[in-house]
Each structure stands twice: as C-alpha cells, then as structure tokens.
Design a protein around this nucleic acid. Sequence first.
DNA 1: ACCTGAACACCGTTCAAGT
DNA 2: ACCTGAACACCGTTCAAGT
Lengths: 207, 207
Amino acid sequence: MSRNYAGLSRERIIIEALHIIAGRGLGGLSMRRLGDALDVEAMAIYHHFPRGKEQLFNAIAAYVTTARVVSGLTEGQGPPEEEPGSEEAPAEAAEADDRPWDERLTTWAEAYRARLLTYSGALSLLMHRAPHTLGEEDTRALLHTAFTEAGLAGTDVPRACDALHSYCLGSVAHQVRHRGQEDSPEEAEALARFRFGLRALLGGLSG
Amino acid sequence: MSRNYAGLSRERIIIEALHIIAGRGLGGLSMRRLGDALDVEAMAIYHHFPRGKEQLFNAIAAYVTTARVVSGLTEGQGPPEEEPGSEEAPAEAAEADDRPWDERLTTWAEAYRARLLTYSGALSLLMHRAPHTLGEEDTRALLHTAFTEAGLAGTDVPRACDALHSYCLGSVAHQVRHRGQEDSPEEAEALARFRFGLRALLGGLSG
DNA sequence: ACCTGAACACCGTTCAAGT
DNA sequence: ACCTGAACACCGTTCAAGT
C-alpha cells in the first residue's frame, strides 16, 4: 500500500512501548499494538530490533535504568554493549558534589526510586535483566567513593552497594505490590517509609 | 476420545506450573504446555481455574509467598480470600521462640529469602500481586512483636516491617538480575552479602 | 463434576516483496 | 535502508458436547 516513511527510531519505539506499558500493563504490549501506536505495520519494528521482542525488552530495561538518555544521535558506530537501548549523553561534567557521603547517597537513592516508580509497569522486566550501561558505571563509581568516605573498605564496599541497590529496588517492588490494597499507604507515606528504611540502612552500614 | 480421570487439583496444577516456570521461564508457561505436562487437554485447567491464566498466576503467587502449604484437603468451604492458591495447614502451635528479637528476624528473613530464591522464576509474578494469605498474617505478627521488642513504637513499627520486606525482596531480585553475569557472586557470597546488609538494616532500625 | 475438541481472535516471527 | 503484506505456528479463551 502507501509507502510510510514513519521516521521510526529505536527511541521512538521504546517510548511508545513505555506508554502502552503504562496504560495497559506489560502484558498489554504486543508488537501489533505497538505498530498501531506508531502508525506502522508491526513488522516494521523488526527492522530496528531484529531480534524481536526480547531485544525490545532489553532495550526498555536499559532505558528505564539509565538516567541520561538522549535522542538518537551518534548512530552507526557499532554497539559497545549488548543492548544499550538508546544512546547516552556525555557525563555532563558531573560537577563535583562536596556534600557529605550520606547526603549524596540519599539523593541518589531517592532519584533511583523515583525513576523506578515512574516506570513501575516495566519493573518486572528489570527482574531478569541487568543492562550494562554507562549510567550503571557512573552509579558504581558514585556509590563506591561515597561508601569509602563512610569508612568502609575491602569487600564491605561492594556489599554495601548491593545492599543499597537491593533496598531501593525492593522498596519500589514492595510499594507497587501493595498498591491499591485496602490499607496501602499514600505516596507521601510511601516516601516517608522509604526514607525511614534508607536512613536506617545507611546508618547501619556506616556504623 | 478416551476419558481421562486425571485427578487434577489446583495444587497439582500449580506445582506443575512451577516446574515449567523453573525450566523454561515464566514466558514458557502456556496453558497448552501445562495441559501436556499434566496429561490433560489445556481446557481442563479452566475447570479448576475458571478465570483462566490470571487466576492461575494469582494462585502461584500465593503458593510462592506462603510457607505452610499442604495438599488439597479442606475443599468446599468457599474461599475466605480471593485466591488462596491452595489450602494452608494449621499454624502447628508455633512453639514460642524465646530467642532475642534480632535472631528471630534474621531467621525469618533468611527463610523468606531462600523461599523467593527457590521460586525465582516466578519472582516477577510477585511484583504486582500481594496475596492475602494466612501465612502473611503470621509474618505480620512475628515482625510486629519482634520490632516492638527492639524498642520501636508507633508508625516506626510498620515502617520497619516494610523496610525488612523490601530488603529481602529486593535482595533476591538483585541477585537474580545479575545472575550469570561476568563478576556475579556465587551463592555463598550472595548469602554473605545478604547477611551483611541485613545486619546493617536491623542495626540501623533498632539504633 | 470433570474433561474433550473444535472454533475464534489474537499473538510473535519469517520471508518475499515493494520503494 | 525502510517498510509492507501474506503466511505459519502458537497462544488464551468460549462453548457445546461427551461421560
């Protein structure tokens, strides 16, 4: 039929997919429905994600976990990692944060939580996918230096990083899990609970 | 064709489903495949789970989260909750635990972690389902009294419970997420990391 | 009550074809 | 390079029918 230069891109596809997920849940995302939303035949998506839905899922997971995402510039240098999802912006100079370690960690944790909450429909995608993005590398460095500053050393550092990651991920999972239940807390109280546990964890880690 | 008194039951179906999930992942579980594994036409499952796959998923989630599960005795009294998944055994007298609160919590947390790890293939099912089982009620009581004993009061108690739940769930999710990755820890080190964070969290909560 | 078998609408994916 | 359209194997679910 009529040709369709839809101007498809990996990022457009991912974003549209996230909209569908937000509206109808992860189970409501089908290639055909995604095609419809993009005004394209479902099969057009395979040109951008040749390995199909699994690859799309990986890209969504990477998109969700990586903070700095920017429109599809730097195309065509061959992917340095498996599924970067989309290209990442340069580290915008990271303007050295001179606040105490616990404030830096708290800021990071609350931002990470907010991000997971925003894409909570895709949360179960993260359960079996740990994308290897540049953002993850930055996070690793941030947490590492903060915990070192807190007085940790040796194997305690990666263990503390793990604990913090686990707490954030679990906290959002736990909140989503009980959402819409009888006595489930409002977002304000949910945030308060998150902070309560976070303070305890950070205190216990540095003690 | 030949009649088939397969002796199907909700529990048999759930257990077979868990086997398939363990072997081929959650996406590999289809009603038809489940029927094959049970030597039955797929449609026979709908007699035991009239609301289909969604109801089966709820039942699996309940089965996974509830410790005390026993074969399908007490049938036919009408479900007191939405999807109990299968019947639960009586509380087996709970033989009062007189150890200090932190040891009791540690024991609970490690058992909960082990259980989630056993059914890690079904982990993403728990992400959007918080079944209302008797076992959950017991847990609530256990954690509540332990944290009260630790010196917490008022809103701090449910917040501490939330934090502990979140940490356990997130810890398993985090482990499964990185499983099979280059420098992902062995199970022994994973357990050590879990304990490290758990000790920190409990210490921070009671401090 | 418990299970079968055909049917329907939908799905992911392949492949040849169009521009 | 980018997208279409038909095709195939598979899926969840309904419904009438068997015992």
